[in-house]
């Protein structure tokens, strides 16, 4: 099939950037979306033009590197799917596809479709961990954890840190990302010790990094490739309220 692409091209952080029209020819429905872009890039290189730069790595939906807004939806039209796992059979001949980078103040564009997600790093660094020393820890079965809690922690821990939640949020808020981490540790006895400090540090960090406030639109859950639930945001709010009672 043949497609018309409108791809965001931006030379660097200072460049205003614009959508450029490109043609994708002879695309097989078995290709992944990124393989389609690979093909477009091969053509561009042979024509002596600059290939589109985009972030990607594992191409199996787990590393969280790929980050494109396709026709207005982060990671594209298929639910619970990263761009790298999106296949061209979701499109049809003659389609027009708009490809844009994540847009949020906290995620400045580096080039074309690549954004800087260091703000997420800083949120985790502010408290997204359990302060366990290497060695000197108790036997793994010394702390019993109810299956339900272990499962909830795992549901929350599935976050791949791609940033689609921020990209989709009308406010550029990172609440789903922070809430998943807060929840994972808050429901585990190992993590409960630092829960109060953690939730407050992570909340302050979000603000400092330029993320917006949560307006409970729930766009984040709708685009999350791992189906992280907004109920974790409620959990974060509960943890915050609990932290007020000193």
């Amino acid at each position: 099939m043949n497609l018309t692409l409108f791809v965001w091209r931006q030379k660097g952080p200072e460049d205003p950037g614009r959508l450029k029209q490109l043609e994708a020819r002879d695309i097989s429905p078995d290709m992944s979306f990124l393989e389609m872009l690979d093909l477009v890039n091969e053509d561009l290189i042979k024509q002596g033009r600059d290939p589109i730069v985009f972030d990607h790595d594992c191409r199996e939906g787990i590393c969280g590197t790929c980050s494109q807004v396709i026709n207005g939806v982060p990671h594209g039209p298929e639910e619970r799917t990263t761009v790298c796992q999106l296949h061209m059979r979701n499109f049809k001949d003659g389609d027009t596809i708009y490809i844009e980078p994540w847009k949020a103040k906290a995620f400045p564009v580096i080039k074309d479709l690549i954004v800087d997600r260091n703000a997420f790093e800083h949120i985790i660094q502010s408290g997204g961990y359990i302060s366990a020393h290497t060695g000197g820890v108790p036997d793994a079965n010394a702390i019993l954890i109810a299956k339900h809690d272990a499962d909830t922690a795992m549901d929350a821990a599935e976050c791949i840190g791609c940033g689609a939640c921020v990209a989709a949020c009308p406010n550029g808020s990172a609440m789903l990302f922070a809430a998943a981490k807060v929840t994972q540790f808050a429901v585990l006895p190992q993590g409960a010790v630092e829960a109060k400090k953690r939730v407050n540090s992570m909340i302050s960090s979000m603000k400092k990094e330029g993320f917006g406030n949560c307006s409970n639109h729930y766009e984040c859950q709708a685009v999350c490739p791992k189906g992280i639930k907004v109920s974790f945001i409620a959990k974060l709010n509960r943890e915050f309220i609990a932290s007020l009672k000193t």
Binding site: Y129, I130, A132, T134, G135, V137, P138, D139, A140, N141, I143, L144, I145, A146, K147, A150, D151, A153, M154, A157, Q184, F185, L188, Q190, G191
Partner: peptide
Amino acid sequence: NNIIDQAVAQGVPFARDYAGYL
């Protein structure tokens, strides 16, 4: 064996049975 202890201490949510054991 130390690795499993370490990971659990860090909050790695390994699968558990209904009694709460790994």
